[in-house]
Design a protein around this nucleic acid. Structure first.
Lengths: 104, 104
DNA sequence: TATAATTAGTTACATAAAGTAACCTTTAGA
DNA sequence: TCTAAAGGTTACTTTATGTAACTAATTATA
C-alpha cells in the first residue's frame, strides 16, 4: 500500500484550473480589464456560466469587479495580483501548445 | 466590435487541461510509469473515469499503455514525450500553488 | 410620453459529464 | 472448486453545462 498523496496545494490549484472556462477567463484577463459582454464574445461562453465563474473567481481573490457609474453603467473585471501571478502558468501552456498542438 | 480571438492552439491545450482529472493524471505520471489501480488510489478517481481519461490521453498521444504478460498481468501507463513535455506547466502550477494557496 | 436599445446579468429547462456501486474476466493459488 | 487480485465495464443517480428567453436600469429616439 502506497501512502503517497498528491500535494494538497497543487491539487487545489489544478482543480481551480480544471474548471471549464476558468483558465480561459484568466488568460483573457491577462491582457487587461474587460467588460462582461466582451468576455462572453471573445471566449464564447454563455452569460450564465460567465457570471458564475466570475463570482467564484472574485470569492477566491483572483478577480475584482469594478462598477463605473457612467451612462450606461460600465462594469469591469480585472485580475488581482493573485490572478495576475498565473501568467507564468499561462505562458507555459501557450509555449507547450505552440510545440505540440497542430494548428487548427 | 472586437474581432480578437483567443489563439486556437492555446484553446486546445487549455481545454485538454480543463478536463477534470486530466491534469492530475499527467502530474502523477510525471513521477514515472504507474499501474491502473495505483492511479485510482493516489488520485482518488473512480475506475470508470480513469479508464475513460487514459483512453483519451492515449489517443491524444500523451500516454502509452504497456502490457507485461506476467502473472498476474501487469499494465503500466506512462507519459510519452508529448506528455512529459507538460512538466514545465505543472512546475509553474506547483510554484503558484506554494505562494498563493493556503496549506490545507 | 411611449418605444426601443444597450449592458449586465438571471431564470427555467434540456443535455452531457461525473460520481457511485455492483459486476465481469482472467489468472493463480489454497 | 472456491477465493483473491488486477483491470476494467455497466447501470444508475447526481451534478455541471448548454441554450434561449427574460429582467432591470438607464438613455436615446420617434
Amino acid at each position: 500500500m502506497d501512502t503517497s498523496i498528491i500535494c494538497p496545494r497543487f491539487e487545489t490549484a489544478i482543480s481551480l484550473l480544471s474548471q471549464r472556462w476558468t483558465g480561459l477567463i484568466i488568460y483573457q484577463l491577462l491582457s487587461g480589464p474587460q467588460r462582461f459582454s466582451h468576455l462572453t464574445e471573445v471566449i464564447g461562453i454563455s452569460g450564465r456560466l460567465l457570471s458564475e465563474r466570475l463570482k467564484n473567481l472574485e470569492v477566491q481573490g483572483l478577480v475584482t469587479r469594478t462598477v463605473y457609474p457612467e451612462t450606461p453603467v460600465r462594469i469591469e473585471y480585472a485580475l488581482t495580483e493573485k490572478g495576475h501571478s498565473l501568467k507564468p502558468v499561462m505562458d507555459e501552456i501557450q509555449n507547450w501548445s505552440q510545440t505540440w498542438i497542430d494548428p487548427a
